[in-house]
Design a protein around this nucleic acid. Structure first.
Lengths: 247, 247
DNA sequence: CGGACAGTTGATCCCGTTCAAGAAACGTGG
DNA sequence: CCACGTTTCTTGAACGGGATCAACTGTCCG
């Protein structure tokens, strides 16, 4: 599976930028018994309440974490891009507390829980590095709390677009021009704590102001600076200095 | 420092319920060079942007994580109770991405970053256990996103009260009758993404319905079941079973 | 061509905000 | 212990951002 090894090598490069890696540690990570898993858009990779028996690394495509309230409304909690473990929690917690769903057709690399747990206990450096990733995820959750709790619909929408842009850029999946965003306005609404009708109005007005354009599922950002301004976006919380190779 | 050792023993007991602990691991944790740090209410323990040189374990009192937007509004991100590390991130990330502030007068046990990092690399089991704690924190952040994004003011307020109640109970700091909540309505509003005026109205109406009573800073829950119902509260996300031995 | 899904737009409503002012509680110093 | 300034709480009135409802348009795809 060439795709899997490409993503693994990318991750190792990211790790080595953070901390020197012994060959033994590196190989232990690379030699995990990953098995490919390909799923269609909308499939569930993890369901709330499930006992988890494996961890999955996203290799290609996009997925998202999601939770439903008792009255049936949905909140999207974060977006996963290739190189993200979507359920590393599996190896450490017992039951899933939320759902993970494929946004597009996705390819995952799956490892049994036991192998992952063994790796983490026998190779503290690897554990340390993956822990950093989960701490960055937590930082992103915190920013989403701020975004939904304290920014109005306009700023909130811009903030999400800034975050995604920067993350995809750092992963080499976007240029400064823009990026592909295969989400419906309803999914965006569920990520923003808004309704799809209102997301639609926000996009229209941002387009009218010349901030961005939409071409199919591709977002072209015409004015990054203004977008950041409207969003009140400060990228420190992404800890990209931890996520990008410092060559 | 009898307080510190009491909290440390409590943590070790929690750890041992999760996973067998070698004496060497246990002692390494207990023998960390903790230094007491006492701060007044409202003091900052961590400031956004700071380079972190130490980790702090909350021993007594309550603190909270908080972030400000460019236009000056504040969002509280979580509450810390005794036994929580308030900046374990310090040992793994470089810069603080949010503020940590004392809600009441607090006592912390502080460890230099280097000692903590050494412990985590030399004692993978301890690292593993502390990692679980940070994953539970992340789960709580996710639930806050749902709470703020998808629940109305009434349910949202009840949800926060349920969460706090259960967490404090699990820490032995609350009975089923109720608990002390030393937060102003403005602070509650900042935690809920509401205004203090509206929090006030929510509390009044919950009181009128006989769900709860407030006596100074003490919350008496008269009807837990109804409170949980209104909140749509499902405590799985708190992973309280992690206080019980598994596999 | 038809059927489903995504996007668009207008009209209306309502939950929570904002503004303002008064009451209660708290803390501090005399 | 009281006096007094400062928070915190409380309540009303009016406003507005975003939701809701509904209908229509566009698009993709079998």
């Amino acid at each position: 599976m060439p795709e899997i090894t490409a993503v693994l090598n990318r991750m190792v490069a990211k790790f080595e930028a953070r901390m020197p890696l012994e060959p033994g540690d590196r190989d232990a990570f690379l030699n995990l018994p990953f098995k490919p898993l390909i799923v269609d858009a909308h499939s569930y990779i993890v369901r709330e309440g499930q006992t988890l028996s494996r961890s999955a690394l996203l290799v290609a495509g996009l997925s998202y974490r999601q939770k439903l309230t008792v009255d049936g409304s949905r909140q999207i909690l974060c977006l996963n891009i290739p190189g993200d473990f979507v359920d590393l929690e599996a190896s450490l917690l017992n039951r899933a507390d939320h759902n993970v769903q494929a946004l597009t057709r996705c390819e995952f690399a799956v490892v049994p829980r036991a192998d992952m747990k063994k790796l983490l206990l026998e190779h503290p450096v690897i554990a340390h590095l993956l822990w950093v990733d989960t701490l960055i995820d937590a930082s992103i959750y915190r920013e989403w709390i701020v975004n939904i709790g304290r920014r109005d619909a306009r700023a909130r929408t811009c903030h999400l677009l800034c975050e995604l842009g920067r993350r995809l850029q750092a992963a080499g999946l976007a240029t400064t021009r823009g990026y592909e965003l295969p989400m419906t306005q309803e999914q965006l609404a569920d990520a923003l704590g808004l309704t799809s009708v209102h997301v639609n109005r926000m996009f229209r007005s941002l387009e009218n102001e010349g901030l961005l354009r939409r071409e199919k599922r591709f977002i072209v950002i015409d004015d990054w600076e203004k977008l950041r301004d409207v969003a009140g976006f400060n990228e420190n919380y992404l800890h990209l200095e931890q996520a990008t190779r410092q060559d």
